[in-house]
């Protein structure tokens, strides 16, 4: 069998992997949709606090919805159909991937980060919700478009199998996905409104673990950490918040800047000048998140367990929660 094939696929770097895969696959199929547009329509923005689940020995904080949801919601709202497949057998997974490549179809894959050899060691954690596109193969390597990389890369058969069958939470099980049918024309207006309303609802939900309520809960806990956990662990928890907020893929400020970019673009599509102002306000909220991260980092830089510092950043977080609550209540009425 002749094993070398390469689909003509345009790689474009994005901040976040899932948005990037969707945006790049859409472009490949003739639809230009920006990363912020995918993120906004897919209602990707969130805040969530899961103190009872530990990752790297610290609670889970997340600034976005769970993996896969952005694409599902985006697809549903713009009328794109997606096919998703998971596998128990790596051989079948490989065969199905090869079959798609032979049919000239680049596919999205969910993979684990720990064995991604092109990432620096320090970034290789057991995190299983990374996304990439495979767009061809040579005799012994797959051609990879990883949206967080500046240019395309490759992985051997064995390397790809390892990341596709990483284990642990969110194990990808070879998860492969690609769009199968498209609307005649992409109508973004209604999709944008739906996307915005959904995010407003999530952020102001009357549930303690999501949205502004979760932010207040974290703020409350931060005050207790130094006494309850000791300086070392409290520092570690703060570090985890900052890492989740500013890690590769967030676009800075816990996805708030990507969301502001979305509101700016949406203002043009919907012909709604108001949204430009909302975009500006979201940028300022993003800046407040950056200040919060900077002040938190001063605490763990000095390995401090003094409660003053903790109280101060708890106040900042509380203030951000107040601003976001007002923001999303207003935004809901503006679309």
């Amino acid at each position: 069998m002749k094993d070398s094939l390469q689909i003509d696929f345009a790689h474009k770097q994005t901040a976040h992997c899932e948005n990037g895969v969707v945006s790049n696959l859409m472009r490949h199929n003739g639809f230009e949709v920006s990363e912020p547009m995918v993120f906004g329509i897919g209602s990707g923005l969130l805040f969530s606090y899961l103190p009872f689940i530990k990752v790297n020995y610290a609670p889970v904080f997340t600034y976005r919805v769970i993996p896969g949801l952005v694409f599902s919601r985006f697809a549903k709202r713009v009328g794109v159909k997606i096919k998703r497949e998971k596998f128990s057998n790596p051989k079948t997974a490989k065969a199905r991937l090869d079959e798609n490549l032979r049919n000239d179809n680049p596919v999205g894959l969910q993979v684990g980060v720990y064995n991604l050899i092109y990432f620096p060691d320090e970034y290789r954690f057991h995190f299983n919700a990374h996304n990439m596109v495979v767009y061809g193969k040579t005799e012994n390597e797959y051609l990879i478009s990883d949206p967080v990389m500046e240019s395309v890369t490759t992985l051997t058969d064995r390397q790809l199998e390892k990341v596709r069958f990483a284990k642990g939470a969110f194990a990808p099980k070879g998860h492969m996905y690609y769009p199968t049918s498209f609307p005649e024309e992409l109508e973004l207006e209604k999709a944008i409104v739906k996307g915005i309303k959904h995010t407003c609802r999530d952020m102001t939900a009357p549930v303690p673990i999501v949205g502004v309520k979760a932010m207040r809960w974290v703020a409350k806990n931060i005050r207790k950490w130094p006494a309850q956990l000791g300086a070392k662990k409290a520092n570690h928890y703060l570090g985890q918040i900052v890492r989740m907020q500013e890690e590769i893929g967030t676009g800075g400020g816990g996805f708030r800047y990507i969301y502001a970019a979305f509101l700016q673009e949406a203002s043009g599509v919907l012909n709604n000048e108001n949204l430009k102002e909302f975009s500006k306000e979201m940028t300022e909220i993003g800046d407040a998140w950056r200040d919060f991260a900077l002040d938190a980092s001063r605490i763990y830089k000095n390995r401090s367990g003094e409660s003053d510092g903790y109280n101060k950043i708890a106040d900042q977080l509380y203030e951000i929660a107040r601003r976001e609550e007002a923001f999303f209540k207003k935004l809901k009425k503006a679309v």
Binding site: G239, E246, G251, G252
Partner: peptide, 25 residues
């Protein structure tokens, strides 16, 4: 890759080599 506003207030993307608060974390 991060999102930021240019002189005209338009959103653009910019590449960053890193930010100290997260490097320390």
């Amino acid at each position: 890759m991060v999102y930021a506003v240019d002189e005209n207030g338009e959103y653009v993307t910019e590449l960053s080599t890193g930010w100290e608060p997260k490097t320390i974390a």
